[in-house]
Design a protein around this nucleic acid. Structure first.
Length: 570
RNA sequence: GGGCCUGUAGCUCAAUUGGUUAGAGCAGAGCGCUCAUAACGCUUUGGUUGGGGGUUCAAGUCCCUCCGGGCCUACCA
């Protein structure tokens, strides 16, 4: 029994996320949390929408809504979809919450007290037509290097040269196309990360069990060029956390807000406070997860994210926490993911290419997506979604191996013994062999889950399902029934118990199917097996059950072709 | 340009971190079974581990080089 704090990277508010975003953090965090809960650990799983920044304001403008209304509506949409995918967040918060405003301002105050905030006058491009400052990549123009006429202010996509917005020839706003731009002086706060470089470096070096993907990105930022650079943590925007020093105004910073990447990770903490508020608890309830002086010293904290988020979670957020000089809980393990591609290319919002979370749920139940995505998660390298692969994986693993096993056992039992666990006979060597195999495989499965090796865990779980089919084939209760009904009854009793066991073991991945199985087997209270042999006695002779409907309908070739055509993009 | 990751069977991935004959699933072939969602089980065909060179008793694994793919490069988030 341990205490596990788990956070998923925050989905951005500007629209509905696609399947690549889902498998990049939210879904694996849920799978891991469900597993740890099943093992009896105390788990808190936190997620939230990341609501600030220029793209949020632009998305709201495009939708013709005030930004706060847009975000409220999109938060609800994202929450509903998360529920649809059975993501078991203890709380799904909002980075625009009062809690996050207060905490973000608190951290800024503490960092200022520690001498880690610097005021810098800098020059920014302002668009008179848009009425806003433009981030570098929102400025377009002709590349001075290669002549490409849609180069962005930060980099030319054509020749890949890094640029400064002032380098661009005939610069214009990428939002409106206006060329009415001017350079203005504006004051911003910088986080002096460079002062904490040594401390950060030591901290990273101490993480010997982190994946290379994670530590190498952090080390690159720490050591590249002149080393870790200070970073601006404020912006000239309307929507965001107003710049304050704790509860006090910050002279000269009126009308400015904190940068989204400063306040977003703080929302992990704030969302936990929102959770305490929403569940009627006081501050000690969330502090015991986050403050080492308030009971969090025994918490194991795991973060899930796609690889693009790693610099912020290995550098600037730890600086925020360490630099505050308060005993905040630091992350113990970062699980990073690569990208999921769609049919060999990128998922693309603008080109309507790929599958978005709401569309996925309209097509098929969440279990299908959960299983395929996790069993093909981009853990080691970028992964590729294809309709053919999806159809094959779902049909074979879920319909044939697991679903059909449930079907063949329950229907055979019903026809020979009725919808009740049959009595008579006893388990023998064949059953002992299955117990031994599953015991061994369960250990492997658990080891993979403990290590958050999700693909390997799904492969092992599948092997546990296959063991049931192998057993049944060898024991052939349908043939034995003709000569020895008692023995046939024992085989069926054992197989029915296997079904209940599978219901429990599959729950982290396919929770709805698990519920269907356990409800049908009338075994709703079934716990994670401490002992396989014992677990396979949990449904005694005489225990009533019902034959469930087909657990997973197969995806036909015609369906697959229609879906592939529908999502081919513009 | 710089840094990092990566290339293994037709496809998707493993390989206890340098250690026997490189393994699984899918797809293909054959056989069996008839309880089941045309499902299941067994057997089986596929590999010069991107190319070349080196270190070592031993290389998919380490080094060099070439070729291909990807990510990051600090104001998108």
């Amino acid at each position: 029994m341990a205490r596990h704090l788990i956070t998923s990277a925050l989905p951005y508010i500007n629209g509905i996320k696609h399947l690549g975003n889902l498998i990049g953090s939210q879904l694996p965090s849920d799978v891991y949390a469900r597993y740890l809960r099943a093992r009896g650990h105390e788990v808190l799983l936190i997620c939230a929408t990341d609501e600030h920044g220029t793209p949020a304001e632009l998305a709201a403008a495009k939708a013709g809504q005030p930004v706060d209304e847009f975000c409220t509506a999109m938060w609800q949409t994202q929450k509903d979809i998360a529920d649809g995918f059975r993501l078991s967040f203890d709380h799904f918060g909002r980075s625009s919450s009062e809690r996050n405003h207060a905490l973000t301002q608190h951290f800024a105050g503490k960092l200022a007290d520690a001498g880690l905030i610097e005021e810098v006058m800098e020059k920014q491009v302002y668009s008179n037509a848009d009425g806003r400052y433009l981030p570098d990549r929102y400025i377009e123009g002709t590349c001075p290097n290669c002549g490409y006429d849609k180069a962005r202010g930060d980099q030319c996509e054509n020749c890949t040269k890094q640029l400064d917005p002032v380098d661009l020839i005939e610069p214009r706003s990428a939002i409106s196309g206006s060329t009415d731009l001017e350079v203005r002086e504006t004051k911003h706060l910088y986080l002096r990360q460079s002062k904490m470089r040594a401390q950060l470096s030591d901290w990273i070096d101490a993480q010997s069990d982190w994946p290379i993907l994670t530590t190498s990105i952090a080390r690159k930022w720490l050591n590249d060029g002149d080393g870790l650079q200070d970073r601006g943590i404020t912006r000239d925007l309307d929507w965001g956390v107003p710049v304050k020093r704790g509860a006090d105004d910050w002279p000269g910073m009126d009308g400015k807000v904190f940068y989204v990447w400063f306040d977003a990770p703080i929302e992990y903490i704030a969302a936990t406070a929102e959770w305490a508020d929403a569940t009627g608890q006081d501050d000690t309830a969330w502090q015991r997860w986050w403050r080492e002086d308030m009971g969090a010293d025994d918490v194991h904290y795991t973060q899930f994210m796609a690889k693009d988020n790693i610099p912020f979670h290995t550098l600037s957020f730890p600086v925020t926490l360490m630099g505050s000089n308060e005993p905040w809980k630091l992350v113990n393990y970062i699980k990073g993911f690569n990208w999921l591609n769609y049919e060999g290319g990128k998922f693309s919002t603008s080109q309507g290419r790929g599958i978005f979370m709401n569309e996925a749920l309209e097509i098929l139940p969440s279990d299908y997506w959960r299983w395929w995505l996790v069993s093909n998660a981009p853990e080691g390298d970028d992964a590729n979604f294809t309709w053919e692969g999806f159809q094959g994986g779902v049909n074979k693993d879920l319909a044939d191996v697991l679903g059909n096993f449930v079907s063949r056992v329950t229907k055979f039992c019903r026809s020979k013994f009725g919808e009740v666990v049959p009595q008579g006979g006893a388990y023998g060597p064949a059953e002992e062999a299955v117990v031994a195999e599953i015991t061994k495989r369960l250990e492997t499965y658990q080891a993979h889950m403990d290590a958050i090796e999700l693909r390997k865990a799904t492969a092992e779980l599948r092997a546990i399902w296959v063991a049931g089919n192998e057993y049944l084939q060898a024991a052939e209760p349908w043939a034995v029934f003709k000569t020895d009904p008692e023995r046939s009854a024992a085989i069926v009793r054992f197989a029915l118990n296997l079904i209940a066991l599978y219901g429990v073991l599959a729950r982290p991945f396919v929770p709805d199917a698990s519920d269907t199985i356990l409800t049908a087997m009338n075994a709703g209270e079934a716990k994670w097996p401490e002992d396989v042999a014992e677990a396979l006695h949990s449904l005694p002779a005489g225990h009533a059950f019902t034959v469930p409907d087909v657990l997973f309908a197969k995806i036909s070739d015609e369906d697959r072709e229609a879906l592939a055509a529908r999502f081919a993009g513009k």
